[in-house]
Nucleic acid binder design. Structure first.
Lengths: 298, 298
DNA sequence: TCGCGTCATACGTTAAACGTATAGCAAATT
DNA sequence: AATTTGCTATACGTTTAACGTATGACGCGA
C-alpha cells in the first residue's frame, strides 16, 4: 500500500502559495519549512500531470492550469470543511476565518457594526474585512463573501439578495431651494452622478406611483458614493443617495429633499459567495446576521 | 507539521466498507490488510468526531451519520476524480469503473449492445452492469448511472432525457384479428398491462392526431415488460409495448398491430446520475454513446 | 560588488502507517 | 455441545515517505 500525504493538504498549500505569490511566505504561514512547501507543490503538480506555477526567484505566476486549479481547490477545501463541520460534536462553536469584501459606505458603517457585533458574539471568528467599491475578481481575492450593491458581475457565484436600499434625490438648499417639488425643475441643475448607477437619465417614481424619466445634466461623476455625497453637501449638484446615508444631514438641514415623496429606483444589496454543496456554518450565520442588520435600510 | 494519511483515501475505504458491509472484504478489495482498513475507518471516525459504522462480528450497519457521510463521500471522491482528470496529460485514455443500472428489456438488448461496444472501444473501462426494473435507492447502490424508463423518483439526481420510446398496441392475431382498426373494439378484449405505465385507462393517438381514451379490461398486470410481451404473444391479452421490442414478432406474424397508425403515449428513457461539478470523462462519454444508441428507438 | 531573499534538492532524522500475530466474539456446521 | 470459520480490534516490530537542515544557484536592490 503506497501512502500518500493528504491531497487536500496539498491543495491547501497550493492555494496559500498562489495567494501569497511565494513558496517561502506560504510555508511560514502554514508552519512548514520552505523545502516542504516546495516539495508539496511539486507533488501536486506530479499528481495532476501538469505545471501549476511558473517559478522564478522573485516572482511566481500561475499557469492557465494553475488558475483553474485554484478555483477548484478552494471549492473542494470548502466542501471538506462544510462536510466535516456537519459531524462536529460541538455544534455551538463558531470559529475560523471569514474574509469579506464590502462596499465602502456600508463597510464603514452599518455592515461594519454588524460584523463587529458578530465577532463579539463569536470571538473565535477571525475577520478579514476589506472595503472596496470596485468589482473584485472573486477567484483571485479568495474571499468568503462579497457584499455588493447592485448586480454581481460574476455568474459563477451564488448571489442572494439581502436588502433593498431606498434612494432619494438630495441637494444643498442653496442649490435646490427653488425646485419646490417639481421634478422637471431638476433638469436645469447640475447632477453629481454615482457610477455605475446613474448616467444621463434619471428615472423617478412619485408619491402616487407616477413615473418620470428626467434628463440629468451630469457635471460630476464618481464611483465613490462618499465623494458624491460630499459634492452634494457642498452644493456642487444634486445627488441620488440612500436615505440611510443622508438621514443626519437631512435632519440637520445640510441637505434637503427637493422632491419629497419621490424615489429613485431602489438598489439591492447582494451577498455573493462561491457555490459549494455545504457552506460553513460561520458563513451561513454571518450572512443571516447581515441580512437582519441591513433589513432596516429599506 | 503533523502528517496525515490522505483524507480522500479514508473516504474511499469507508465507502468500500459500507458497500461491502465488511471491513475484511473491503480490505481485500483495496489490497490492504484487515488491520489497516479497520484503523483507517477508526481514523476517519476520529477526525469527524462521530461513529459512522456499528460493528459486530457478522454484521456491520451504518449509523445515521454514516449514511450521510456515505453520500457526501462519494460526491467528494467523484469531484476529485473529475478535477484530476481535467488536468491529465493523456486526454485520450478512458479508464476506470462504471457501475450502471439499466431496465431489464433494454439492459439485455440495445443498451447492453451499446455498453459492450463502448467497452470494446475503451478496453480499460470496467463495467458493472446491473439490470433491474425496480426503482433503486441510488445512494445505497453507489452506481454511476441509472438508465430509467419514465420518471426518476429521486430529485437529488441530475436527470437527462436520452430518447423517447414509441409504443403501440400489439396482440396475437387469434385474439385481435377482428379489431379491424377500430379502437373501441379493444375494450372487449383482455389487456396485459405493464406497471406503472398502464392501468384501467388507455390513452391513444390516431394516425391523424385524433385522441381517444379507452377503458382497458386488465386481466394481467406485471412490472416486467418481458412477461407482458410473453402474455401478448400467447394470446392472453393485448399489450402496449415499444415498437423496437416487437419488431421481429410483427414481421413474423406472431404479433399483429390491431390498430395500425395508433400510438400510446411515448415514454422517455432518462439518464440519472449524481450531481457533481465535474463528471468523469468516461461517464460523459458513456452517456453520449447511450444517447446515440437509443436515438433509433423513437 | 555585496547582501538578501528566493526556490530546488541532497541527506540524515522522524513520525506514522504498515503487516503479522493474537485475542475475543458470533454464527454455522458437525 | 464442541468445533470450525470468519469477523473486528489492537499490540508490536518493520517499513516508508515526509520531515527539517544545509547548501547551491539565481535575481534584485542598494
Amino acid at each position: 500500500m503506497t501512502r500518500s500525504l493528504d491531497r487536500l493538504t496539498l491543495l491547501e498549500t497550493f492555494v496559500r502559495i498562489a495567494e501569497r505569490g511565494s513558496i517561502s511566505a506560504a510555508a511560514r504561514d502554514l508552519g512548514l519549512s520552505q523545502a516542504s512547501a516546495s516539495r508539496q507543490l511539486a507533488d501536486l503538480e506530479e499528481r495532476l500531470g501538469t505545471q501549476l506555477i511558473i517559478r522564478s526567484t522573485h516572482h511566481l505566476s500561475l499557469t492557465k492550469a494553475g488558475e483553474r486549479c485554484l478555483g477548484d481547490a478552494r471549492l473542494m477545501l470548502a466542501e471538506w470543511e462544510g462536510f466535516a463541520e456537519g459531524f462536529a460534536g460541538d455544534a455551538d462553536r463558531i470559529a475560523g476565518p471569514l474574509k469579506i469584501v464590502a462596499p465602502v459606505a456600508l463597510g464603514q458603517t452599518v455592515a461594519l457594526d454588524c460584523a463587529m457585533a458578530f465577532q463579539a458574539a463569536h470571538p473565535d471568528i477571525v475577520l478579514d474585512w476589506i472595503v472596496d467599491d470596485a468589482p473584485i475578481r472573486f477567484s483571485e481575492v479568495g474571499c468568503d463573501l462579497w457584499l455588493r450593491v447592485g448586480a454581481v458581475p460574476d455568474e459563477t457565484l451564488i448571489v442572494q439578495p439581502l436588502a433593498k436600499v431606498q434612494r432619494i434625490v438630495v441637494a444643498a438648499s442653496g442649490l435646490a431651494g427653488s425646485v419646490d417639488g417639481d421634478p422637471q425643475a431638476l433638469t436645469a441643475l447640475p447632477c453629481a452622478a454615482l457610477h455605475p448607477f446613474e448616467g444621463g437619465r434619471l428615472p423617478l417614481t412619485g408619491p402616487s406611483g407616477e413615473a418620470t424619466n428626467l434628463d440629468a445634466r451630469v457635471t460630476f461623476a464618481s464611483n465613490s458614493i462618499a465623494a458624491t455625497k460630499r459634492v452634494a453637501i457642498a452644493g456642487g449638484g444634486y445627488a441620488v443617495l440612500p436615505r440611510w446615508m443622508v438621514a443626519e444631514e437631512l435632519e440637520a438641514g445640510t441637505l434637503i429633499e427637493p422632491l419629497p415623496g419621490w424615489r429613485a429606483p431602489p438598489l439591492t444589496i447582494h451577498a455573493a459567495f462561491a457555490p459549494a454543496r455545504r457552506q460553513t456554518r460561520r458563513l451561513r450565520l454571518f450572512i443571516d446576521a447581515m441580512r437582519e442588520a441591513l433589513a432596516g435600510l429599506a
